[in-house]
């Protein structure tokens, strides 16, 4: 019986995943007006955090490459949106798409040298790039250097529209990531992570496999930066090219479950609400977050998702044993 249910789920896993995502997103999209502005803003922030974590998880979780350079994509996406709107006066949505594409190109550009590094060297290499990008931006007069860059009037949308942007972006992220992970490219990606030499000896080429993955991760993170720019209204280098984005993404994925589909969602929800409700304890807020992180890493190294699937397997096993 249980086996049949599992077989059924396995058979319709992909349509089920896509279907659920589309339906949930549609409901969220259509009910936007029934939420108040505070809720719309909160959910926008949460969805952006989820998108960031999902995009990072592609490289850091499935690919096993611990990137600390993802703040560059957030920065490029947000500043490109602001600059194109100001200088060229394009409509908002095409601008955001172009900004995301620019971020994807930056992803290819960064990945090409970075992919020669592995493990901690890649983490430090990408961190170096993030620091260099920050240093460049803080001195670049074209983007008003260290001064705030105000988004033009065209970017001022109401909270409901902003929330709908975030919903659509999250849906795009889920669908594209599921498609990639389940494709031959996704299998090769995991193979490279699990055993690089074994992968090479059955014809998997490292750079060729990883470049498109970095490009997609850059695209989604850049789009997240574009919506983030719309939400913020005013950009600063500190608020966009900040290493904190990479760290947040990594922490969310570790807490939720690295290299899993639902890990970034669970992690993002935990971190978002933890921050929201611990904010009133001021100095202790960071401490609380740190303690949660340490506890998860120590006791549930596979994240909350790992804990759930372990418990699930234990139940199934006990049932199977009882049937015997």
């Amino acid at each position: 019986m249980i086996r049949q249910i599992f077989g059924f789920i396995a058979k319709f896993r992909d349509p089920f995943t896509y279907g659920t995502a589309v339906v949930v997103a549609a409901v969220l999209y259509l009910t936007a007006s029934s939420l108040d502005r505070g809720q719309q803003n909160d959910l926008t922030s949460l969805f952006l955090l989820m998108t960031l974590a999902l995009a990072w998880n592609l490289v850091g979780g499935y690919g096993g490459q611990f990137s600390l350079g993802h703040s560059i994509f957030v920065g490029v996406g947000s500043y490109a949106t602001a600059v194109i709107l100001t200088l060229l006066g394009w409509p908002l949505i095409p601008t955001m798409i172009i900004a995301a594409v620019m971020s994807a190109l930056i992803g290819l550009l960064l990945a090409y040298p970075l992919l020669r590094l592995r493990g901690p060297y890649l983490a430090v290499g990408s961190l170096g790039m993030a620091v260099a990008a920050y240093g460049w931006m803080i001195n670049w007069d074209f983007t008003k250097a260290s001064q705030a860059y105000a988004m033009p009037k065209e970017a001022q949308v109401d909270f409901a529209t902003m929330y709908q942007f975030a919903t659509v972006l999250l849906l795009i992220a889920i669908v594209s990531i599921v498609a990639l992970v389940r494709s031959p490219l996704g299998l090769r990606l995991v193979a490279l992570r699990d055993n690089e030499l074994g992968a090479a000896s059955i014809g998997v080429k490292r750079v060729r496999t990883l470049l498109p993955v970095w490009a997609l991760s850059g695209l989604l993170t850049g789009a997240m930066g574009a919506v983030y720019a719309v939400q913020q209204g005013t950009l600063t280098v500190d608020g966009t090219f900040n290493i904190q984005f990479s760290l947040d993404a990594a922490i969310i994925c570790v807490i939720g479950g690295l290299g899993t589909l639902s890990g970034p969602f669970i992690g993002a929800i935990i971190i978002y609400f933890l921050r929201k409700y611990s904010a009133e304890y001021q100095n202790y807020a960071l401490l609380i977050e740190a303690v949660v992180l340490v506890i998860v890493v120590r006791f549930f190294p596979a994240g909350i998702v790992g804990l759930i699937s372990k418990g699930f397997r234990a139940i199934v096993h006990r049932r199977a044993a009882a049937q015997k």
Partner: peptide, 12 residues
């Protein structure tokens, strides 16, 4: 090439 020490992709 089949390696002396198997090199499986354990999570697949």
């Amino acid at each position: 090439l089949a390696h002396q020490i198997p090199k499986p992709f354990k999570k697949l």
